[in-house]
Measured scan of single mutants.
Amino acid sequence: APTVVALYDYTANRSDELTIHRGDIIRVFFKDNEDWWYGSIGKGQEGYFPANHVASE
């Protein structure tokens, strides 16, 4: 899976979202739409995150 790096912190608001912190490396499983992508950090943490909070490595 491609990876991206978090540019900003984001705290999940729902159970299907992913909390990310600046500098996190996120594996992107799919891009649901322009605004929300689905991916994982490490083991067990996965969910939707805002695409405008990340950039290609």
Rank of each mutant, 00 (worst) to 15 (best):
E46M: 08
G39K: 01
R22I: 08
E46P: 13
S15A: 15
D9Q: 06
I26T: 05
I20T: 02
V5K: 14
W37N: 04
N13Y: 06
N33R: 11
H21C: 13
V5C: 06
A51H: 08
A55H: 15
N52P: 03
H21G: 05
Y8R: 14
S40I: 06
A51G: 03
K43N: 09
R14G: 11
A12H: 01
N13T: 13
I41P: 05
P50Q: 04
I25M: 10
A1R: 05
N13S: 13
I26E: 04
S56C: 14
G44P: 05
G47R: 03
Y10S: 00
Q45M: 12
Y10D: 02
D9A: 06
P2W: 15
F29A: 11
S56M: 14
E34W: 02
F49G: 01
A12L: 05
I41M: 12
S15H: 13
H53I: 15
F30C: 13
W37Q: 04
I26L: 05
V28T: 05
G47P: 00
V5W: 07
F29K: 15
D24Y: 06
R27L: 05
Q45I: 10
E46R: 08
F30W: 09
A6G: 00
D16K: 10
F49T: 00
I20F: 13
R27V: 07
Q45T: 08
A12M: 04
T19C: 04
D16A: 09
L18Y: 07
P2F: 15
P2Y: 11
L7Y: 07
P50V: 02
G42C: 12
W36T: 04
F49K: 00
K31S: 10
H53W: 07
G42Y: 13
P50R: 02
E34I: 12
A1V: 10
G44M: 11
A12R: 07
T19P: 06
T11M: 07
L18K: 03
S40L: 05
G39M: 01
P50W: 01
A1G: 07
I25V: 12
I25P: 05
H21Y: 05
D35C: 10
Q45E: 06
F30T: 13
F29G: 06
I25Y: 11
G23A: 02
V54M: 03
W37Y: 12
V5F: 09
N33W: 04
Q45V: 15
N33M: 06
Y10L: 02
S56G: 15
V54H: 04
F49Y: 02
V5Y: 04
N52L: 06
F29P: 00
A55G: 14
V28F: 04
E17M: 03
Y48P: 01
R27H: 13
E17R: 08
F29T: 13
F49D: 06
A6H: 02
E17V: 02
V4T: 06
P2E: 15
Y8A: 11
R14I: 06
G47C: 03
Y10V: 02
